[in-house]
Amino acid sequence: MATVILARHGRTSANASGVLAGRTPGIRLDDVGTEQARTAAARLGGLSLAAAFTSPLERCKETSALLLAGTGLRAKVERGLNECDYGEWSGRKMRTLVKEDLWKVIQAHPAGVTFPGGESMAAMSARAVEAVRRCDAAVTAEHGDNAVFLAVAHGDIIKAILADALGMHLDAFQRIVVDPASLSVVRYTPKRSYVLATNSHEGSLAHLAAQTEKPDEKLGGGAGSTSRATP
């Protein structure tokens, strides 16, 4: 099966000001977020991506365009990667949301949370995992098991995908950190999934193009890659 690079969008003014943007339209990268995405793009140098997918929201489309600049590849919108629908919480300041009773439940038992007027976190997780696995199967069918593709999404979406890949219950996904413009890597196989990187900010990912070890044959961590390089 193929390997997916999960990229969170770069920083936005909503992130910087502590606002829960959700699906609010018009939220775009700020200057810091643009530079973050350009830095992340340099880490993909030397890597031929088979395909790319993005959340339909502006901040992810902008990030994907920066990540793919000069490659000739354009990200396809995948609605399964859309941000969680936070309903009535969307657009509100985080400092006020943390005072809500629901906040404590979100931290301890997210699998049981449904946002007022919005989506449940369980539904968010299910659609995100289904989307990335469906994209992975399609890329594998067209480009083969060694293909690498990009998926640009949001913090909670990527955390949910990583939790699934790690075999973790959704209630534990708050233990995973996914910063703006960070890159995480998952390789799917018929038997299980392998998390190759999480929340990474430095180093070239070009070695993913020359994967020689079979994950199912590793013991004690394996030999690793000999083609790693810094950007």
Rank of each mutant, 00 (worst) to 15 (best):
M1Y: 07
V4K: 02
L6P: 02
R8N: 08
R8S: 03
R8P: 06
G10D: 02
G18K: 13
V19E: 06
A21I: 10
L29P: 04
L29F: 05
D31Y: 12
V32P: 09
T34A: 12
E35C: 14
A40Q: 07
R43C: 00
L44H: 01
A50M: 04
A52P: 09
S55H: 05
E58L: 10
E58C: 02
K61M: 12
K61R: 15
K61E: 14
L66K: 05
L68R: 11
T71W: 08
V77N: 08
V77G: 06
C84H: 09
D85R: 05
Y86V: 14
E88L: 15
S90D: 10
G91M: 06
L102P: 09
V105Y: 00
I106M: 10
Q107N: 10
A108L: 12
P110R: 08
G112R: 12
V113H: 04
F115H: 06
G117I: 06
S125R: 15
V129T: 09
A131C: 06
V132K: 01
C135F: 04
V139T: 01
V148T: 12
F149D: 06
A151L: 01
H154D: 07
H154I: 03
G155F: 00
I158P: 04
I161L: 00
I161H: 00
D164R: 03
D171A: 01
F173T: 02
Q174M: 13
V178C: 07
S182W: 05
V185Y: 03
R187V: 10
R187M: 13
Y188A: 14
Y188P: 09
P190A: 11
A197E: 10
N199E: 05
S200W: 03
H201W: 09
H201V: 13
L208K: 03
E213S: 14
L219Y: 11
G220T: 10
G221V: 06
G222V: 07
S225T: 15
S227V: 12
A229I: 14
T230P: 09
